[in-house]
Design a protein around this nucleic acid. Sequence first.
DNA 1: TTGAAAGCGCTACCAA
DNA 2: TTGGTAGCGCTTTCAA
Lengths: 344, 344
Amino acid sequence: MVHPPKPPAGPTPAQRPVPTSADVARLAGVSRATVSYVLNDARAVRISEPTRRRVRAAAEELGYVPHAAARSLRSGHSRMVLVPAPAASTGFLYHRFFAELQAALGRLDYTVVQYGGGGLRGDEAARAWAELRPVAVLVPGGGLGPRGVAVLRRAGVRAVVTLGPERVEGAHALLMDHERVGRAAGEHLLARGRRAVGVVLPGEPGLEIFSAPRLAGVRHALAGSGATVTELPLPYEEEAAAALAGRWRSLGLDAVFAYNDEYAMLLMRALQDEGVSVPGRTAVVGADDLVLGRLLRPRLTTVHLELPSARDLAALVDRAVSEPGRGPQTHDVLGARVVHRASS
Amino acid sequence: MVHPPKPPAGPTPAQRPVPTSADVARLAGVSRATVSYVLNDARAVRISEPTRRRVRAAAEELGYVPHAAARSLRSGHSRMVLVPAPAASTGFLYHRFFAELQAALGRLDYTVVQYGGGGLRGDEAARAWAELRPVAVLVPGGGLGPRGVAVLRRAGVRAVVTLGPERVEGAHALLMDHERVGRAAGEHLLARGRRAVGVVLPGEPGLEIFSAPRLAGVRHALAGSGATVTELPLPYEEEAAAALAGRWRSLGLDAVFAYNDEYAMLLMRALQDEGVSVPGRTAVVGADDLVLGRLLRPRLTTVHLELPSARDLAALVDRAVSEPGRGPQTHDVLGARVVHRASS
DNA sequence: TTGAAAGCGCTACCAA
DNA sequence: TTGGTAGCGCTTTCAA
């Protein structure tokens, strides 16, 4: 965090200063130590009930709120779990997962903070995170290298956990191997007798981390079968989908794996408008198993993703924090199975 | 933030302590002051180039990263903008808006932090936010009362801005009046000759802040026209939509405003499956103008929302921070206009 | 039962 | 050009 040389204020307009524990002590007629004991319910020392009351009343009257930074500076640790905001818009599944994770960590008394990197990359970003001295960092997607991990560890971060397709040296990994998603789709299409498979690659930046392994998975599934793979770049726009559908016959494809349900639906609609029958002429498979996929007919075949339980992940973080001695663990957590509906 | 009496650690496994500026000073053979000057590029003092180099090298070697909390404790201010995570899942529009806002504030050198409330409500939550001593707080949705605002101000927060349907005493407000969304839909349906309008109310918790004013807007638009309004609770599930469609004829409705595009699409699909013609027998109107709405035929009529520009909001925050003297401003920022397509 | 005081890591004022 | 040092707000040990 870069600071300008001057405080951000103009002329401060006679604003009352923020009350500190010393102010509370003064008002209650006790020492700062007593204030601390009372407000933190310290069990080691006995404070008389009248004193407690006086302190509480004084704090209330002044609107005193403790200063988290000062407290954690003094105590030498914090319960902050930092989660950098993912670079790209990651869709509904991620948001739900993140919300659940937040709740689960909250139940373990951690404070989850999502940090908006603001264009920093790689080691720069890691430095910015390290300045906040979180007890744990959870990095979704890619973007953290071994150097970054080292910076964080050096700054006292007890647990560095990556969530994504790649493992990173020195960090715990919740490996979400998206190749499996593509593989499941590819195997399914092969089993259905398809031989010329298109794979949609989203035009939106930042999705390569997911789309590349999914594509690789399809290739892997089809390797040695004689079936072909064709890459189909596609921005998420109606016109782009129509254009792709317009040249569909010339592509000679009998199936398409469309990255996810949203792209799949967009493309399927465009294909139908173009008179390409689904699944007759072309099978369509999406991923993520969204409600969305049941809107069109035929209903969309999709790859259902099984994300790790948020509670388990929270427990993993907690364990890693309390026992930083153990080496980084890798857990393979992404389940992928085809839900066969009518579009394939 | 509640702290457990003990640090989270088990037995610390001979971990090297986190390097401080004093360590850097020692290694470079200079004082801590000099380290601070060099690493912050202090322009007031001149440090010789060899010294600068020695300090930089020492910092590099130790992997030194400054401690943000200590720094802001000392300097008495921070550039942190706190954005509490919204209670309910708020959809694509909000996420895009939030991402843009983050980028815009980042360009003004603020650090945006999204804070996971973790089940705290009202004044409790405000206290938790205040402990972090942010320079500004942006509260989406409802959930902050006048008391909460007072707590924040008392803790030195220079700008409290609410984004949502309600104004809050003492805070700047970016008023997003969702009644307008319902009103636009209602007026449109009335103009198309519809007289019996259903309004979908999402079954998912937390969306009442938006759905209630949207419903009120429809009522408002239809008041005095003789047209009727029927409330239609609907969870976001295929089966629920089918059930609702199953008793559609008995409801005697000739139009429905479906909260947003997602619910609209779900319901429209169910209506079509039930043989209810759209727009012939029933007109359907959504909101949010998502790409999704173009998937089914007829294409979905929708209410397009114009959110405030993220850059403008960032500028507003910046101004409020630098001039806390001026009283709280209210800006009316939500634009709503009907995009007429084929479903109505 | 309460108070005095040290010190967490950092910046900035004043002196050398 | 560099160093000594006070102090931000808080907790906690040691004394009283």
